[in-house]
Write a protein that binds this DNA or RNA. Structure first.
Length: 853
RNA sequence: GGGCGCGUAGCUCAGUGGGAGAGCGCUCGCCUCACACGCGAGAGGUCGCUGGUUCGAACCCAGCCGCGCCCACCA
């Protein structure tokens, strides 16, 4: 290595992530490590498809966590020599992207309707070209080793072909159909949305009780509602069939106040006789429950609220044109005037809101495209039941299965312009419907002009086929052969149904195999105060700012360290711990690299400390690797940290320093080997700092990114060396503690005499104790070591210390004696537990006796 | 309404049947020739509450209290 570089290393006493990361990343990209050839089979290769972020998105903490996990496993497998692909791309995100561009237009005083569909879509594409790569660049900042040359977009040309193929096949199988049905209408995005895009929120409303007179009678039926304006669309009143109060009324009619419509009184078991008066107004046009009751009883479906959220013609002249809120007030006022309003009381209940726009859902009946899911779900249930797709942690398996078993038809059409326009054409003259992957010229039946369906597909319809559509499906590409099925998926639970379940269904149906073998559901990182991180709450923490401040390695380490199977709060301390670790790696490496001598290739050291550190290293490699393979990232990084910081830096490096300064060959060989393996082990988690340090390592032949990942060498495990070193470390600790206790000055060397076998050399050096054959009188015993009298030691402190230790020992002896005196314990506890307890007791007694001299 | 999970040191979290752990914070001592983003030594916990099972419970069981999330058509 050039002396110049070593000089640099000597100068830099701090690791500066900001100065290193971009350069190191560029180095990987130049070599093309992340762009594998499409060779081999999926069985031999390793592949992951990133959950495609929205093009409108910016990297948030969830992406950063998920990316850190995926990259750790992807890098580990790449280092193991597997042909590894991590597919990256973005989702066109229909509603979100359309909203962004519409907002831009509004700022210019324009609307999409003025532009027209074609020009608007062009405008969105222009937006995408300009801003769509932002999040991709942000993944690079994180260090994600994705194949940036194979970047995909859910609306790119090949992908659209795949989407249309899927639509056509599902249509031909009879799964996709068009129907007039109750949907969740989102007044914010002016589109229907699926059940999964709806969230329920607690809302304070008023519950109004309204009297509906029974026709030809003095009786009234009092019904309760939080939405009196929908009464204009009532077409029945329902009571429970077992409710004796109303048995005689079933089959008769009520008269709808304000409107005068005759409403049949029907019996339906859905009605809860306990609630209110036990009579329920039925509004099939604007309530999902009523809709189902209505279809069951063949009731008329009237719409009084339009897609614009205003009262429609059906509401009558008096109310048409009002907003629903205005109409509510007007209806209540009118009812009050007619004396029909019996009661109004505050009422808290949960109501649906659009997850996208945040507006209150308006349930209404409209003509939409649906996909039947039961047939698709069946095999997707079986593969999870049989663990062909393993979902971890295990409780999510059940959650998945329960949802899948009750799956309902999926509303797949959206009244948007940005997205996959549904590949359906209508011929108005002959009422023909044509579904095709390519736009047909003319109507096959009558030769007439065709009109394409206006609606686009739900964004999730296209992301459902992500793992294989990104690889070129429906063509039989080499990529598909090499990288499908993918190896695993890590995800947040919020998209388990929205995305994961649908990928499993489409994977089996279209690609002939499950899309991945393992699904790992990771924790959600909450804000520091325990609230959810969200832009609207202002609780978001920007991962890029964390990277600016502490480096990508620090953030990656921190996120993995704080990850868990349960939700956790974002921990600045863990990120700081990562930054400190990067710095410590840098400095420990400086110590080693600047001082090693010529190292022999083979290392079979004699000395106990060398055998010890090699043994501990191999044990660490084994357990870190096992934890990574089980998606237990927190324990993986915690163990790597503990080994490196405590065992390697705090003990071994201190013990080895004199030999290192002598440039001794054997210790050089041990240290270079340990460093190499530690860097490689940590590289999947902290790729930048490890790669940078590796560039100074004399054994370096190429990038660490493609260096073999360490495999634990069991032959180097040495339990005898571990036990000996443990004893030496323990003794050193006790001597240091004793020094502190008697307030011996830090620099002072204590005189001592060892009883029995002499302690290892490092004990005296690290505890600043000098052992002599003879000398003064012992003033205290620390284990097998007698501390000799000296002027600096405070005799009072010593005797206080001895007294305290005797107390501790007496308590321990009493505890152990008590336990062993318990006949049941001795009789029923396992033999080794009992004998351990006896051994402890003997040790305590011996020490106590020694101190009592 | 159903389901899942959580309550352990001041804070954030590990630990899931045999003597309470980590990181941060705190106290004391160290600029010891890799690192003060450091080194050494400490203090700090009736493991939410109450019962039960067991020779033995933070850990298993039951109930209660508090908190969170998911699913669900009680107006």
């Amino acid at each position: 290595m050039a002396d110049e570089r070593l000089g640099e290393l000597k100068e830099k006493t701090r690791y500066e992530a900001a100065e290193v990361e971009a350069r190191v990343f560029a180095g990987w990209m130049e070599e093309g490590y992340f762009h594998p050839a499409a060779e081999g089979t999926a069985g031999e290769n390793f592949s992951v498809a990133i959950p495609p972020p929205n093009v409108t998105g910016a990297l948030h903490m969830g992406h950063a966590l998920n990316g850190s996990m995926q990259d750790a496993l992807v890098r580990m497998n790449r280092m193991r020599g597997r042909n590894t692909l991590w597919t990256l791309g973005t989702d066109h995100a229909g509603i979100a992207t359309q909203a962004v561009v519409e907002k831009e237009l509004r700022a210019e005083g324009k609307s999409r309707h003025e532009l027209g569909r074609e020009a608007f879509v062009e405008r969105v594409w222009a937006w995408k070209e300009e801003y769509g790569s932002r999040i991709v660049e942000q993944y690079k900042r994180l260090g994600a080793s994705c194949d940036y040359k194979r970047e995909r977009f859910t609306l790119d040309e090949g992908y659209v072909r795949a989407v249309y193929r899927v639509f056509k096949r599902l249509y031909d199988k009879g799964y996709i159909y068009r129907d007039n049905y109750m949907v969740n209408w989102d007044p914010g995005s002016h589109s229907a949305i699926s059940d999964l895009e709806v969230e329920n929120r607690e809302v304070k409303d008023t519950l109004y009780s309204i009297d509906y007179p029974v026709e030809g009678s003095e009786r009234v039926l009092t019904v309760a509602t939080v939405r009196p304006e929908t009464m204009l669309a009532d077409t029945a009143v329902a009571v429970n069939p077992d409710d004796e109060r109303y048995a005689d009324l079933v089959g008769q009619h009520c008269v709808l106040p304000l409107v005068g419509r005759r409403l049949p009184i029907v019996a339906d078991e859905h009605v809860d006789p306990e609630f209110g008066t036990g009579a329920l107004k039925i509004t099939p046009g604007h309530d999902p429950t009523d809709f189902e009751i209505g279809r069951k009883h063949g009731l008329e479906e009237i719409g009084v609220i339009g897609p614009d959220g205003r009262m429609a013609e059906g509401a009558g002249e008096r109310f048409a044109g009002m907003t629903a809120a205005e109409a509510q007030e007007a209806v209540v006022a009118a009812l009050r005037a007619e004396g029909r309003l019996r009661a109004e009381e505050p009422y808290v209940h949960s109501v649906p809101f659009s997850h996208r726009s945040g507006e209150r859902i308006e349930p209404l009946i409209s003509l939409q495209w649906f996909c039947r899911m039961d047939e698709l779900a069946r095999p997707a249930i079986e593969v999870v039941e049989r663990d062909e797709v393993r979902i971890a942690p295990p409780q999510w398996k059940r959650v998945y299965l329960e949802w899948m078993r009750e799956i309902r038809p999926w509303c797949i059409s959206r009244q948007l312009w940005w997205g996959h326009r549904i590949p359906v054409w209508y011929c108005d003259p002959c009422e023909e419907t044509i579904v095709a992957e390519q736009p047909p010229e003319r109507c096959g039946a009558c030769g007439g002009e065709l009109r394409q369906e206006e609606d686009v597909l739900d964004t999730w319809f296209s992301s459902a086929i992500w793992p294989f559509a990104t690889l070129g499906w429906p063509d039989e590409t080499p990529e598909l052969r090499a990288f499908y099925p993918t190896s695993f998926l890590t995800t947040a639970r919020e998209i388990l149904f929205l995305w994961v379940a649908r990928m499993i269904m489409t994977g089996i149906e279209f690609a002939g195999d499950v899309p991945f073998r393992d699904v790992y559901v990771h924790s959600v990182i909450q804000a520091r105060d325990g609230r959810r991180m969200s832009k609207s709450l202002g609780t978001g923490i920007d991962p890029l700012e964390e990277i600016d401040r502490h480096g990508a390695d620090a953030l990656r380490f921190g996120l993995l360290a704080m990850s868990s199977t349960q939700d956790v709060r974002f921990s600045d301390a863990k990120v700081q711990q990562g930054a400190d670790l990067a710095n410590k790696l840098w400095n420990a490496s400086r110590l080693i690299l600047l001082n090693v001598g010529d190292a022999p290739e083979e290392v079979r050291p004699e000395r106990v400390e060398d055998r010890w550190i090699l043994s501990r290293l191999e044990a660490t490699i084994a357990s870190v690797t096992a934890n990574l393979e089980q998606y237990d990232f927190a324990h993986a990084v915690g163990e790597a940290y503990a080994f490196f910081w405590s065992e390697l830096c705090d003990w071994y490096l201190e013990i080895a320093k004199p030999r290192l300064y002598e440039r001794e060959d054997e210790v050089s060989a041990v240290l270079l080997r340990v460093l190499e393996r530690v860097l490689a082990l940590l590289h999947p988690v902290m790729p930048f700092v490890t790669e940078e340090i590796w560039s100074y390592h004399p054994a370096r032949q190429g990038h660490l990114a493609v260096h073999p990942f360490p495999q634990a060498d069991e032959s180097l495990r040495d339990l005898e060396a571990e036990a000996q070193m443990q004893a030496g470390i323990e003794l050193t600790r006790r001597l240091r503690a004793w020094r502190d206790l008697v307030e011996a000055p830090a620099a002072m060397v204590l005189a001592a005499r060892a009883e029995g076998t002499a302690p290892q050399e490092f004990v005296g050096r690290l505890a600043r104790v000098e052992f002599a054959e003879d000398g003064g009188d012992p003033v205290a015993a620390v284990g097998p070591v007698k501390i000799l009298a000296s002027d600096e030691i405070d005799a009072g402190a010593v005797s206080a210390r001895l007294a305290a230790r005797r107390e501790e020992l007496r308590a321990e002896v009493a505890r152990a004696e008590g336990k062993l005196a318990n006949e049941k314990f001795v009789a029923r506890a396992p033999a080794e537990v009992v004998s351990e307890e006896r051994e402890k007791l003997e040790c305590y007694r011996a020490e106590l006796e020694e101190l009592s001299e």
